[in-house]
Design a protein around this nucleic acid. Structure first.
Ligand code: SF4
Ligand code: SF4
Lengths: 155, 155
DNA sequence: AATATCCAGGATATGTAATGTCCTGGATAG
DNA sequence: CTATCCAGGACATTACATATCCTGGATATT
């Protein structure tokens, strides 16, 4: 039930890329900006790329760049790109095993337990989708100085 | 990000205990009702017990019994008893590491990222708390026959 | 064309937490 | 006193996230 660290990495990397100003930035620069393991961060960036949040350009002076402005990226986009979209409650059908499973008729129709869990999860995703990275950046930003620092750190 | 299987086990065990009619039921009976590993289920039951959802009576003819009716038990109660109440988004403070960490001033005030995640998580818990086991039992129950079967399986 | 740089992605460790097992001790009914 | 059952600590096992490495392909530069 703990969220992958990659989500935090991806969030800050996306925010940094926005500060960087559009040009592609290499994955190793992005990694050392926060002291992250470069090869692993690279994999996460690949996932973001497959999800359509990032574009990658190979070759010298290549790297990753944002495909859309921050106000078009929600927290849900990032979480789904990193964590996948599998349900957190995954049923093992224990009701059909053991004594009760043998004695009971095979259950029919949709499962109420699963339904209730899915409703809760849906409202979680909804709340995630209601937050854009632009809003978060606005609360996080502490002035133009920070932009300079980040651009310098990404050289 | 996957929920522990113990949640499913606990849910069905609580529902079964309700069917059983109030008297304490041994953990091994509860386990074989669904073909679950008895010693491990026992640990989960201990957690439910510590959370106040179950009462345990030692000695012969002992076992576990519900402490309150199903309509006073929410999904959140069960999830929290099994999974604990730790946040799913746990920050590693990467913003303070690496180049950016060294160059930037130490961030002040509450973290907007964390806040947004917490809001989403809160709305998840809220949805879980809105569902009682009694409601789920009502949708799950397929008639008085099932009650008989479960009571028989728990002998 | 040759070269240096950088991403893509598979194969493979390593670490950590969930899952599963075992055993000892304490409580209680008979 | 004894048989039964829970409490809980100490492991073993498994699954998964985390981390590393290496090969190949793309591209800008020379
Ligand atoms: S009743 Fe629902 S949660 Fe329980 S085993 Fe069946 S499908 Fe899974
Ligand atoms: S900005 Fe927030 S999420 Fe990012 S490292 Fe700091 S506390 Fe954690």
């Amino acid at each position: 039930m703990r969220m992958a660290k990659g989500v935090e990495w991806a969030l800050h990397t996306l925010l940094n890329l926005d500060m960087a100003g559009g040009g592609p930035v290499g994955s190793s620069q992005l990694a050392q900006a926060h002291g992250l393991p470069a090869p692993y961060l690279n994999k996460q960036l690949q996932q973001l790329s497959r999800a359509g949040l990032l574009a990658s350009t190979p070759g010298p002076r290549g790297g990753f760049s944002l495909t859309r402005p921050l106000d078009a990226i929600t927290l849900l986009d990032v979480v789904q790109a990193i964590e996948g979209d599998a349900d957190m409650f995954q049923c093992t059908e224990i009701r059909c095993c053991g004594r009760i499973g043998e004695l009971s008729p095979r259950p029919t129709g949709p499962c109420p337990v699963k339904n209730a869990m899915s409703r809760a999860e849906a409202s979680w995703r909804e709340a995630l989708a209601a937050q854009t990275l632009a809003e978060i950046k606005a609360e996080l930003d502490t002035g133009p100085v920070v932009g300079e620092i980040i651009r310098a750190a990404l050289r």
